[in-house]
Structures are given as structure tokens and as C-alpha cells.
Amino acid sequence: MSAPPGEYYTDERWQNWIERIDEEDIDPEDEDSARLLLNLQDDAAIAVAKIVTDYQDGELEEEETLEELAKVREIVLAEVEMDDEEKLMVVDGVQTSLVCVFYAAEEYVAGEVAEAPIADLIGAASDAEEGDDVDAALGYCAQAGTRIFADEEELSMDVVDDLEFGLVAEWVNGLDSLQTALSDPEVVEEDDDA
């Protein structure tokens, strides 16, 4: 059993990451900064992956699973307070990427696994975004995520490379973190000396 209910992710853990970002010089072009942001994103995705894995293993009932997901979502998607506008934008990007992970987890737990290939779903999401139908775009990305949860198919980086920068690209980025979390659910260590 990986974590007792209620302890998959804590507000304190999220705040530790936020404080690190607040204290450091963040430049998304810089490798260390990019890694810090990716670790923040992966850490939350790992919590989601563990909850769903415990559900798959029968350790959590559907209702408990949705409650645990809601707790993590509340922590991760809460408004972040920082004085630095650029850092706020960067954290907002991470939160945006994770929105899709939560929707995908909830759909999967509700028993909805898409049948269409991931590339087709991402393509449909991209088309929907171009047509300003953001809700449909998010829906298609979440469906792609259900296929990752169900271990039906892997998200290919070729799909990501073809995307224009925008919401779909950010959501697919979140799905990439989810895929990594499901294949290697090791907790991202927070550096104590940072």
C-alpha cells in the first residue's frame, strides 16, 4: 500500500515547492529552472498516479478515490500568491498542465476509457482549440489521459512536437508527466538544502 488515504499529497508539500520557486531565480530557458518546474509538475502527477493505482489495486473504492483526487486538486490548483509576476505565470503554466491530469483521472475512475488512439484525440483537441472550443479541447485531452491510465497506449513525443504552443500543448505536457509517474512512481525528492 503506497499511502494511507488523506496522505497522498499535502498542502505543505506543495507550498515547499512554491517557496523554492519564489526564492530562486527562475528562467524557463535555464536547465535547472526547467527541472525544478518539471519536478513540481511530476510530483503532483505522481500523487494522482498513486491514487489511481490504489483504486486499480482495489485499495480504494470509487468514491474514496474521487475524494482523494479532489483533495490533491484543491491543493495544486489553488491560487498561488507571489510578488513576482513572471514566476506566477510559470507556476500557472504548471497548474494548467495538471488540470488535464485531474480530469483524465476522474474520467478513468468513472469508468470512461476512450477508444480512439491518443494521436487522434490530441489532433481533435488541437482542432477544437483552433476553433476556440476550449472545453472540447480539454475533453479530448482528458480522454487521451484515460488511455494512459488504462495502459492502452503510450503518449508519443511525436504528437507533442507537432503541437502549436497553447492550452493543448500544456495539457499534453501534463499527460507526459502522468505517463512518467505511472511508469516510474518514485517520489520526487525535494532538496533540503535548497
Rank of each mutant, 00 (worst) to 15 (best):
T10N: 02
E107Q: 15
I148C: 02
E31N: 08
Y103D: 14
S33E: 07
E7S: 14
S156K: 14
V168N: 08
A114C: 06
S126P: 00
R35C: 01
A45V: 08
C100P: 04
M157F: 13
G6P: 02
E64I: 07
D193E: 15
E74R: 09
D176I: 10
A44Y: 01
D22A: 15
I51H: 04
D83C: 00
P28F: 11
A142R: 09
V76R: 06
E59Y: 11
D11H: 07
T53C: 01
K50F: 00
A137S: 10
D32E: 15
L175D: 05
D135N: 12
Q56A: 03
V160H: 10
D84G: 03
E81T: 11
E7M: 10
L37P: 01
G145A: 02
D43S: 12
T180M: 13
D57S: 12
A144V: 01
Y108F: 15
Y140S: 06
D43V: 01
Q179W: 02
V80D: 11
R20K: 12
L163N: 07
S177R: 08
A49W: 03
V187F: 05
R73K: 15
D84H: 11
D22W: 07
A114W: 02
V134E: 13
C100V: 12
D151I: 00
T96S: 13
E79F: 00
S2M: 12
G131P: 00
L138M: 13
R20W: 04
V48M: 07
W17T: 05
E29S: 14
V188E: 13
Y108Q: 02
W171G: 06
E85R: 14
E115R: 13
D133W: 05
L121I: 03
A150I: 02
D176N: 12
T10E: 11
A110E: 15
D32I: 08
P117S: 12
R73F: 00
D133S: 09
L69P: 04
A114P: 03
M89N: 14
E189Y: 03
D135E: 15
L77A: 05
L167R: 08
E186F: 11
D83F: 07
A70C: 00
L178K: 02
A70R: 11
T146H: 06
D11M: 06
L98K: 05
E129C: 05
D83H: 07
S156D: 14
I122P: 07
E154S: 11
P4T: 07
E67C: 03
R20Y: 04
D11P: 03
Y103E: 13
E153L: 02
E7D: 10
R73V: 00
L88I: 06
D32S: 10
I21C: 07
D83N: 12
E62Q: 15
S183I: 01
R20S: 06
D151E: 15
E81V: 08
W171D: 05
E23H: 11
Y140G: 01
E59G: 06
A70M: 08
V91C: 05
A104M: 09
Y108C: 03
Y140I: 05
G93S: 13
Q179C: 01
G123N: 12
A78E: 15
E7H: 11
V99N: 10
E154M: 08
